[in-house]
Amino acid sequence: MDTRTAVRVVSLSKKYNKSDKMALSNLNLSINKGEIYGFLGPNGAGKSTTIRLLMNFLQPTKGEMYIDDRLVGSNSNIYKNVGYLSGDFVAYPKLTGKQFLDYMSAYSLKENDQKYISSLAKRMDIDLSKKIGSLSKGNRQKIGIIQAMMNKPDVLILDEPTSGLDPLKQEVFYELIAEAKKSGAGIFFSSHNLAEVQKICDRVGIIREGVLVHESTLSDLELGATQTFEITFINKPPLAQLKKIKGVSHLELKDKDVILHLNGEVTPLISELAKYRVLKINSRELDLENEFMRFYEKGSNK
């Protein structure tokens, strides 16, 4: 097993020259090889700033970053095994997809594996003989995905990579990401689309106003997430007893129906309900959207 970290960020801060505010404050994070890390946050939270710092497009005000355990800024060769894609992918409009990928290979110090590129193009359903300028945003993004993945990188740094892709191609992209993970790549994936993070990431970090406000595995996040139960009792609901259950945060009574919000394990609730005659239990599907919003509401209430 590869024990190296794919990406490591230590006390990273960034303040832009023309701004009084910190765009990023004391960020610490680490992404392992074979792991997909989802970096969540709304526009302007600091996701792209973090990625642009990692790619050495921006200079940090403070802190250090490592890719493949090598210090960012020390040597450009660290990007030899890095695939990068931004959400607003731009390329040279006068070049065809194939010409563009050949041009990129001149910079990559690697010969293109044409067979692999053709297979990627086929899976993404894109014609590489067309000029990039004539392609739609979604199709341009597909070219971007191919350029990021064509060298089978060990580290993928992706800034909202599915923007513009139709749902079918998003699925293909998730498959490609899963394959990269399986072959041991570490993937840093920024998004504001919670559903896709829920779908593919092992771990999530939530960033707000340049500060990492939460970091956990997806299963921990799910464990901490609020679940909603609708319970119909045959007799009068035992409200006082239900209130005492560990993790119950909200109780609502409608005749013999109770709507209950629960954080954490459901075992105490089931044990308590076993004491009563219960007609029906409905559990609403776990939604991380609420969790995600919780971190933001905390911020806006400050």
Partner: peptide, 8 residues
């Protein structure tokens, strides 16, 4: 930026 994302 795209060019600088390569090992140059």
């Amino acid at each position: 930026e795209l060019l600088l994302s390569k090992p140059i």
